[in-house]
Computed example of a mutant assay.
Amino acid sequence: MEEDNKKIHLSLTRRSFFSTMGIGAATVVASGKLTAWASEEDKVIDPMELTEITLKINGRAHRILVEPRWSLLFVLREHLGLSAAKAGCERGECGACTVLINNVPRYACMTLAVEAQDTEIVTLEGLMKGEELGHVQQAFLEQDAFQCGYCTPGQIMAAEGLLRSTPKPTDEEIRKGMGGNVCRCGAYHNIFQAVNHAAKLKRGG
């Protein structure tokens, strides 16, 4: 009886051992495959690697080499010489860098240049007709809607975007439409007047 118990104990021990080894080996193999899959899927793009993109800005196509990390603001100012969009906070708070992307006001500092492919980009320079000011630019001039002028390009682009979607905005719609642009000089009263005046100019008033 004692010998039979020993045989059963040894048999169970061997069985447990080989079962454990089998599971361990399978785990090692599986983890190796998972690691291989992860390494294939989680390839990190080199931020320094140059990529060729085409940006359509103010009706003109620009083919340029950019790093994936470059913002649209950086490319506009430093590589294309379109310096109207200003570098203010560079973290999406002040609105000095506002441009239109597919007619919607966007912060150029928070938009990667590679994201802006296949879109229509308009900067302040694109509102002019030769040397003639656009309606919103003319309205800001006539209503004295600036002091230091640093935020003015972004204010004008925000107003342009608002008036393209809402040709006859209410005062509340103007406040909301211009809410993403900060004027540190506090010229808001004149800015709102300028937007109202620009709406009339665009309608032929």
Rank of each mutant, 00 (worst) to 15 (best):
E40N: 12
T27R: 05
K56S: 15
H62S: 07
G24I: 07
L73T: 01
M21I: 15
M48V: 13
K33L: 15
F74Y: 11
A36W: 07
I23H: 00
I57C: 05
T54I: 11
V29D: 02
A30H: 11
E40R: 13
W37Q: 07
E41G: 02
V66W: 00
K43Q: 06
P47H: 10
E52L: 06
H62V: 06
F74S: 00
A26F: 07
A30F: 10
T27S: 09
K56D: 14
A25D: 12
E67T: 07
G32R: 04
V75T: 01
V29H: 07
M48G: 15
E40C: 05
F74M: 08
G22V: 09
E67R: 08
P68S: 05
R60V: 04
R69A: 03
I64K: 00
A36M: 05
T27A: 11
F74D: 12
D46K: 01
V44I: 06
P47F: 04
P68N: 03
A61R: 10
H62E: 10
V28R: 08
K33M: 15
T27M: 03
V44C: 04
L65P: 14
I64H: 01
G32L: 11
L72H: 01
S39H: 09
M48T: 15
I23T: 04
A26S: 10
A26R: 07
R63I: 11
I45R: 14
L50T: 09
V28G: 11
L65E: 15
W70V: 13
A38T: 14
S39N: 14
R60A: 02
H62K: 06
P68V: 00
V44N: 06
I53M: 08
